[in-house]
Amino acid sequence: METVINMALLTLLAVVTVAMVVQRSLLSVVILASIYSFLMASVMIVLDAVDVALTEASVGAAVSTVLLLATLHLTKTREDMPRHGRALPLLLSLAVGGMLVWGTLVLPPFGTANAPIHQHVAPRYINDVMAETGVPNIVTAVLADYRSFDTLGETTVIFIAGIGVMLLLGGLRRQSSEEGAPEDPS
């Protein structure tokens, strides 16, 4: 049952992606991207990644969409026809895709419990998490306890991204308004 639901959701994802590739109105692309994120969150729930699904639904479908819409408000919403040929990118993509599919042929089948990924560190976390941290949600325990250095670095990345955007969009405006010389809006 899980497999069938997963396949249906993945098919929907592929359809939405095709629509995003052919759509020329950027507003539609952004709305489709939002739908894509919700579908991705559903797929993640089927794949048992509930924490990730919650994050994808709130970040991918909400905040990303708001930021993209704000950008479209500041720029333009229509995509021009590309001037160069599409044959080379298509060929490149298909070649890369072919090689990657060939690479997946040796991967273990979907959902098997004795695949190599489940043998190494995961049993250590699953068996010892209650004794060592007392936190039932293993994802939270690994995120904030076992691998808190990663999370510290990641919080710093968010901090840097925020500072970067504030400098790019806010800093100059303040400076130029103090000098009394508004920017040329061309």
Partner: peptide
């Protein structure tokens, strides 16, 4: 984490809105 993430997301939104 929650303080940084919420602060950054709102700050990003304000930055984009005030640019417009």
């Amino acid at each position: 984490v929650a303080v940084t993430v919420s602060g950054t997301m709102v700050a990003l939104f304000y930055a984009f809105v005030e640019r417009g």
